[in-house]
Design a protein around this nucleic acid. Structure first.
Lengths: 225, 225
DNA sequence: TAGATGTGACAGTAATACTATCGGAAACAC
DNA sequence: GTGTTTCCGATAGTATTACTGTCACATCTA
């Protein structure tokens, strides 16, 4: 099974989801960035990996920054897809928020779909390198061109759930974006700079993180007493 | 007046705080990164700017990544310094946390100190580029070498205040690191991708952000009812 | 079957990210 | 006050990066 997302056309010169070579670039690009890091990653190395040429990859993406943006956008669309199908028949917005938090941490479907994109690896990649997609000099131009729409839609979705729980809460967008940023950050810290987090790497870390995010969100949103 | 911080020696080959050239590198490096972005920044361009040579800068820093690490570490030390002197004679940990939040957002002293480092510009730089200091392939080695100690100390300081407010709270380190990450992120979003935040750019944004962070932290820490 | 499109092969360029060597000035040692 | 480090600037050089351009061939499309 394959999923195709309609991503903003500014992200690519030619949609890699449409061709065999394009999918090969994406599939192996994720693997390569994961193994050598985004700074060390070049189109030349990726071309060698897939038995193609630098030039052929440049026909899909203007440069490696756009490639990263494509990958992160695909990822945000994927998380949004997971959340949307899983809250569909749930009425309580409080339950919806718990489901959203679960999927933004796990970013995986129960029945893993057999696609060219390895979502677990892509999640790892977004945790490590995702921030670089928008911490760039050209951020304002790229924002105008709609390059961050996938992230915005996702934040909007969670923001709406938050508003449904507590319509008077004045910081729904900030809480929503912070849940995503915090989830990825805390996982990164747990794995690399453990002094900066209360999480402990291990089997139950994902569950602990989900519990922590729910504790935070509900502590802020729901009045006790 | 000049402040010198004792930063981890792995951060530089020769402490730039000790020489006129070193201070010139730091002072103008901040200005140059702010104006062209970290990706576009090179030692060659900086050398031209200060009338020196590439090689002379390489005598202080192994590469531009270490230079960024030095700047962010200096910044974290500076914020810690501000928080420490301002909570000194405050007994209530709840008031201490409010003061800490204030200074991590403003990152400035009432009487600006006349130094070669422009703290406001440095703060802008950390908001934009700070994450790149530790989102790197070599993060584990650098963590072992103590390159992130300044950030850890700062998180520890705030984490201790949180523990004093609510000793049973199980996520003090995560809340502390999230306050820093969230503060910088929300400012960045407000300025560049406003759909991702509830803040509105303008005169009162800093005050609004301080209010929001206090709302979040106290909502989580302090039981109502 | 003619034409458009996609890919690989190859060449080439400016900039980047360094490393090496040398010589002069200043600071410091005795 | 002479010798010796230390520091800095000047110049040169290299491998890699981040592209751009051209051409030939295969394939798919009308």
């Amino acid at each position: 099974m394959e999923i195709k997302f309609d991503l903003n056309e500014s992200l690519f010169l030619k949609d890699p989801q449409d061709t065999a070579l394009g999918r090969k670039i994406v599939e192996n690009g994720i693997i390569l960035i994961d193994s050598i890091g985004f700074e060390g990653f070049t189109f030349k190395k990726l071309a060698k990996e897939i038995g193609s040429t630098e030039k052929s990859i440049y026909r899909y993406f203007e440069n490696k920054h756009y490639f990263l943006l494509f990958l992160t956008s695909w990822y945000w669309e994927w998380v949004r897809f997971l959340i949307e199908i899983n809250i569909k028949n749930v009425d309580s917005p409080q339950k919806q928020l718990r489901i959203a938090i679960k999927y933004l941490v796990l970013a995986t479907a129960e029945n893993p779909m057999n696609k060219y994109i390895n979502e677990n690896l892509l999640h790892k990649l977004v945790i490590k390198e995702g921030g670089k997609a928008y911490h760039i000099y050209e951020v304002d131009d790229e924002n105008k061109a709609g390059m961050f729409l996938s992230y915005k839609f996702l934040v909007q979705l969670v923001s709406n759930i938050i508003n449904a729980i507590n319509p008077k809460f004045p910081y729904s967008a900030s809480l929503a974006s912070n849940l995503f940023e915090m989830a990825n950050n805390q996982i990164y810290f747990a794995e690399h700079i453990p002094k900066l987090t209360s999480l402990k790497p291990g089997k139950n870390m994902d569950e602990d993180l989900i519990a922590m995010l729910i504790y935070f969100a509900e502590g802020i949103l729901i009045k006790k007493g």
